[in-house]
Amino acid sequence: MLKLTNVTTVVGGFPAVRDVSLEIKKGEFVALLGSNGAGKTTLFRTIAGVLKPSKGVIEFNGKQLNNLPAHKIVMLGLSLCPEGRQLFPHLSVYKNLMMGAYTRRNDHKGIQLSLEQVYELFPILKERKNQLAGTFSGGQQQMLAIGRALMSKPDMLLLDEPSIGLAPLVVQKIADVIKNISKEMGTTVFLSEQNANMALMITDRGYVLENGKIVLAGPSSELIYNETVKKAYLGA
């Protein structure tokens, strides 16, 4: 479904992502682990078209993404739930979700179904649908950001550090929902996390990114016992 071949992205003269190759198949649930500054966000922004790769090829369902602007990539069914959430703070929760469905704005029935689905995943979004997004707490904003990304009904969802800055209980709740999105809804999910423990508990397999390079890859159940991963990310 998603295939990267030797992708390099230069940000401010510095290659933040170097020579990354990876492949994710339909229906998979994959983790991208790495510490702060490893290049996870740059890699995701490159895939989503916010940044342009300086080298390499990105393909989604056989279509090359390299030169497509971000808004066209969403239309192909690849949605990024970005770091920092990037919500519309002065719009209501409901309008944020509706903007999430912008690419299918004429499919009123489909939007209604997606909306109900998102409300079911995050009941708080329904309760507070008229509240301004900017007045939400961090956890609620993260839920809204995931909900907004789902409103485009993506075939593949990229989640950039959804657990960052959240309380452990909220992280648990969000992890459950992400698992649900993958297993119940059948969406292909690529999850970037510093919280390796959480990510490896729910995903099928993972990649480890260090200094912009993939240094390790394998099934999550193996990575969780890997000495390097343990030392670097699990605090053991």
Partner: peptide, 9 residues
């Protein structure tokens, strides 16, 4: 950026 990512040109 949020606007770009929801598909707004």
């Amino acid at each position: 950026e949020g606007a770009m990512l929801v598909g707004i040109n």
